[in-house]
Design a protein around this nucleic acid. Structure first.
Lengths: 173, 173
DNA sequence: GAGTGACAGTTCAGTCAACGAACTAATGGC
DNA sequence: GCCATTAGTTCGTTGACTGAACTGTCACTC
């Protein structure tokens, strides 16, 4: 039961959650997975994370059932979110919103819309136009006003994220 | 701008958020602050965190404006959540719910109710009885079905949390 | 106004994880 | 067979966490 970096003796479910996704880099890996990143090299290049650490984190997430290893199109291994991983979305979205509110004076760095009607979707997940609760695959992430002037990378993930795209849709066709 | 443990070059607000509250122990400290913990010794004893780390984390959180240092009743220093800290509640609540869902087979370890009418309050913050959006100080946290059989500590914080109590209400009168 | 106790940190040596660069293994295409 | 791409592993260095002991400060008491 105790994971490598545990919080021993805590009664709260927050401690259990953090044992799974609370280590350095792990939440950013999960976020990238929502954005459609699926391959080892793309995670590594986009995040700038040491490859040894990435390897260890992906193995942990797969063992925890947050990601699943699948065989990709060209014989490459790919990592995709499981249902358990998908249900992390509300927490991730709330954390992003907090950062946008307090550390992005020009507005959100990314905005989320309902693919069906282009209505904006706040953290509650309820489309501002049609009022429906939007499931994750129906969300479109697009650059927001706070993104201008940010130092942009040239890696495939950053390039792909410069245009609106559905969550979970693989970065590489 | 770059914090001691930064995520350099990230465009996403999640990375900024994690620079503030993403280090080991930090979120548990914030959670305890929501539960009414205000004093150095109570944090240290309840969390089992090395005192040097706690000292560093409290200083970081205060500098970031998540906690404020105030002079307590008996000349002791106390740490209380600021408005910026309070707005972390939706994210914290979502993380707790995820842990309850996947790592607490007997049900939630803690439940949250509306102080005014005792209605249950889910992560959305909307009271199940009256339909109002419940502000954090109006929330009551009580032991849930998943807490039974957990190894319980004898420290003042654990003892206080064994009965229903309002969030933010100081553990010590 | 010296003594006592509670409290908030600091210091320090040992341990463990992160970092960055270089290297290895496996696969597919030509 | 040969080369390019990709997914990791290895390894020496650096830095952070850990646990225990120590220091300083304040309020209260006699």
């Amino acid at each position: 039961m105790p994971l490598p970096k545990d919080y021993a003796g805590q009664q709260c479910s927050l401690a259990r959650t953090l044992e799974i996704i609370g280590e350095r880099w792990t939440m950013l890996i999960v976020r990238d997975a929502f954005f459609g990143v699926r391959r080892f090299g793309d995670f590594a290049e986009h995040l700038g994370i040491p490859r040894a650490v990435l390897s260890e984190r992906l193995a942990s997430l797969a063992e925890a059932g947050v990601l699943s290893r699948i065989s990709g199109a060209h014989g490459h291994i790919e990592y995709a979110l499981t249902g358990k991983g998908l249900s992390l979305w509300p927490a991730l979205r709330s954390l992003v919103d907090w950062g946008d509110e307090y550390y992005s004076a020009a507005g959100p760095r990314r905005v989320f819309r309902h693919a069906a009607d282009d209505g904006t979707v706040p953290a509650s997940g309820i489309c501002g136009r049609c009022g429906a609760t939007v499931p994750v695959p129906e969300l479109v992430v697009a650059p927001g006003p706070g993104l201008a002037g940010q130092p942009a990378g040239r890696d495939p993930v950053t390039m792909a994220m410069a245009a609106p795209r559905r969550l979970l849709e693989p970065i590489r066709g």
